[in-house]
Nucleic acid binder design. Structure first.
Lengths: 250, 250
DNA sequence: CGGGAAGTTGAAGAGCGTCAAAAGTAGTGG
DNA sequence: CCACTACTTTTGACGCTCTTCAACTTCCCG
């Protein structure tokens, strides 16, 4: 049985990643209320448990690549992931950072529309897509939940388009810090200081900037007194109001 | 009964827009297969008909504004719509152009995440959100379809982020023309020449450029021999391969 | 410690934006 | 039918933000 799981793991990602036997009952899951598993009955949860597998990734480990057959969908339970698209010459656009409770791998097509990789050590729940679909037929509440998550993602994507297309570097960085802060708070952590675990390159690729511009802009905001850099990748939001006005482009 | 409809219309948009009594049976709808109503049984279609109303808009007419209460969802049946977000100082990001068969108004929140307005004369089906939701409970096939559309939208949004964050002006214009062409073909029209009904300003706001840059870039592509401008806002794709390579950033 | 990656800072340059004006297009009314 | 107006598009000149290329510094992790 463990052997079986390990084999499937290798189809999925490099030997770096580890899979274990069916995850401990979803009922103990700390991020359940944030994701598709919210509000399921005990019986439904146990059915879900029976198809789910856990995946562990280290920083930089790939989960899947764009164009790959989308046989699984995932739920982040710990750590941070990034999803991105590439141009043939290597230019990269990070389309999202994912935190515990976030869902990924929804594919309309039969293939993933983006690549996914771990930013920090991360744990995910993996659902075979086919099996999840048949489960959805019987758990309309879960399907509704999934639709809700997708439409939330869609709204976030549009907000990001506004940022990419129309905001200046300063506005982008301010928006980014506030977004991280807000998302941390929604996960029940404190939003200030905010931990910024991703590299300058990742931030640049998310905001449509170069690492140099990210660095310079952060330095600038620090000079303004809007933020302070602490150690451990933490950023203190020193002047929330200024940052918010900047982010909204006022 | 018609009075009732007119009154509700006024909550929705300005007197410019017109509503009629329940639309002629959905069974005759020409875009049904493209949208949420695909694959419904005759009986289901008639139930759907009973809650739907038709909306007609002229160029520039608003359908709804960001932040407004999202009491309705819509389906474009004819014409072209645009959806966009604004910054307080007036900077605008068009997050999508919508054509017959496209769906809009999905709101996660209780309010719309963007504004919507007609680009050309347009007709839409309007569904009261609440009633549609109860219908979805009974028509799982429609809910599945909606989820499929949402995840398709999501993939398109990510493609657009790649464009906004990482492509040059030339690459953006090339991608845009190919996108319009592709979408026209999917609706059963011919993809070349492609009709570009929207203004340079709208295009710029969609691609994260100014109207001047859009104009200059189009002139440039014409000079290259990649495209030709015909009258009636039509653009002939003269060198498809060149345009594709440009769009992919090769 | 020491080596390598990540981050910061600097100088120069390119691409796109801004401001301005001309050319084209469409709608209106005499 | 044509002239007038108003708007959209195009073109031009210039400037600024962000990128590019490069060197230097800091931070890790062995």
């Amino acid at each position: 049985m463990p052997t079986f799981e390990v084999k499937r793991m290798q189809e999925l990602a490099e030997p770096l990643a580890r899979t274990t036997a069916p995850v401990s009952p979803c009922s103990a899951c700390s991020v359940r209320q944030l994701t598709i598993c919210a509000d399921l009955a005990a019986e439904e949860l146990s059915e879900l448990s029976s198809i789910v597998t856990s995946v562990e990734l280290g920083p930089g480990d790939p989960l899947f690549d764009e164009e790959e057959r989308a046989d699984y969908v995932f739920n982040v339970t710990a750590g941070t992931m990034k999803i991105y698209k590439l141009l043939p010459d290597g230019r990269r656009q990070v389309t999202g950072f994912l935190f515990p409770g976030d869902f990924l791998g929804l594919a309309n097509d039969e293939t993933y529309a983006y690549s996914a990789e771990a930013v920090s050590p991360a744990t995910l729940c993996r659902f075979p897509r086919r099996k999840l679909e048949t489960l959805l037929d019987r758990f309309p509440r879960m399907e509704r939940r999934l639709l809700g998550l997708a439409s939330h993602e869609l709204a976030a994507a549009q907000e990001q388009m506004l940022l990419l297309g129309r905001k200046t570097a300063r506005e982008k960085i301010a928006s980014f810090l506030l977004l991280l802060s807000e998302r941390a708070r929604r996960r029940g952590q404190k939003g200030n200081p905010v931990s910024v675990l991703m590299s300058r390159t990742d931030i640049g690729d998310y905001l449509g900037l170069t690492t140099e511009t990210v660095s310079r802009t952060i330095t600038q905001l620090r000079g303004d007194g809007s933020i302070k850099l602490l150690n451990g990748g933490k950023v203190e939001i020193a002047d929330l109001k200024a940052l918010q006005e900047l982010a909204e482009g006022a």
